[in-house]
Design a binder for these strands. Structure first.
Length: 273
DNA sequence: GGACCATGTCTAC
DNA sequence: TAGACCTGGTCCC
């Protein structure tokens, strides 16, 4: 279950595995069947990501647009591929690799203009090149610095920042000692600059290691010494899904509450208004 | 085997 | 803001 780093990593892996040979495209589940038949046997001209959206190009035929949503999963591996089950929406197959996509919110064949429209409705993405068109973090700051919405909700809004999900929102706010209930227009410019720079750093690490680690090296002994992690996001974190456990730094009990339709986690001791 | 939960987004009201 | 949607893992009976 992905945040932006997962999708960027997936794009990299697809480029690595499916770059040059014709790709067999199939939809064992059936819901991508017609499009799969159209693309079957073509050579892809590359995958890329914007936020949590994945695009794989097939020349004049268009782009496969994938959004995993909350439940979507990708299995990627070396051939031979396992027998396809009827939950596999999309299978890509080459001589050496396979990819199975299950449970995505979106898996559709789209045109160039449709792809462009998706880019335009998404905010800047910490993982896209700083010089990519429209990827200026200033756009996000312009929205945030005028907003009366909580910073925790703003960080999750893909129109404002693309790619941040529930783990990175909780962790980046902790790392900067920011109370999640502060509103956007009360953030200082320096705080925003630090948040953006940290997201770039953390999410790049997330792509590299294919997991979310946010605990600073000097705090790792404390993190490892406390109660064991209970979640499955894959890395070491300060607050995400650590409700009622003691904070790694100050020992205060981590709190949780719903915010912007998701469970928020924070340390009331370290994150003060 | 069933209930419940999960890193998300869209639509109807 | 509630509900729908997509699937799999975990826990409990």
């Amino acid at each position: 279950m992905p945040e932006g780093h997962t999708i960027h990593r997936l794009a990299q892996d697809l480029n690595h595995r499916f770059a040059t040979e014709p790709v067999r495209v199939a939809s064992p589940q059936g819901r991508f069947g017609e499009s799969a038949a159209l693309l079957d046997g073509q050579v892809t001209d590359g995958a890329s990501a914007h936020g949590k959206h994945l695009f794989a190009g097939f020349g004049d035929s268009g782009w496969i647009h994938v959004h995993l949503g909350l439940f979507g999963k990708v299995a990627l591996g070396d051939t031979p591929a396992p027998p396809p089950t009827d939950t596999v929406r999309l299978r890509l197959l080459s001589d050496t690799s396979y990819m199975d996509l299950r449970g995505p919110t979106t898996c559709a064949l789209i045109t160039g203009p449709e792809k462009q429209a998706i880019h335009e409705r998404l905010g800047p993405d910490p993982l896209r090149p700083p010089d990519a068109p429209g990827n200026d973090p200033e756009r996000a700051w312009a929205r945030i610095s005028r907003s009366r919405t909580t910073v925790a909700a703003l960080l999750m809004d893909q129109k404002i920042i693309a790619g941040v999900g529930n783990v990175y929102r909780a962790e980046v706010l902790f790392r900067h000692g920011i109370d999640p209930y502060r509103v956007g227009r009360d953030l200082t410019r320096a705080e925003w600059d630090a948040i953006w720079a940290d997201l770039v750093l953390l999410m790049r690490e997330g792509v590299r290691h294919n997991r979310i680690d946010t605990v600073r090296p000097e705090h790792l002994p404390e993190a490892m010494g406390r109660a064991p992690r209970v979640d499955d996001h894959g890395g070491e974190v300060y607050v995400y899904r650590r409700a009622t456990m003691p904070c790694h730094l100050c020992g205060t009990e981590i709190r949780t509450a719903p915010l912007a339709a998701r469970n928020l986690f924070w340390c009331p001791g370290c994150q003060r208004a």
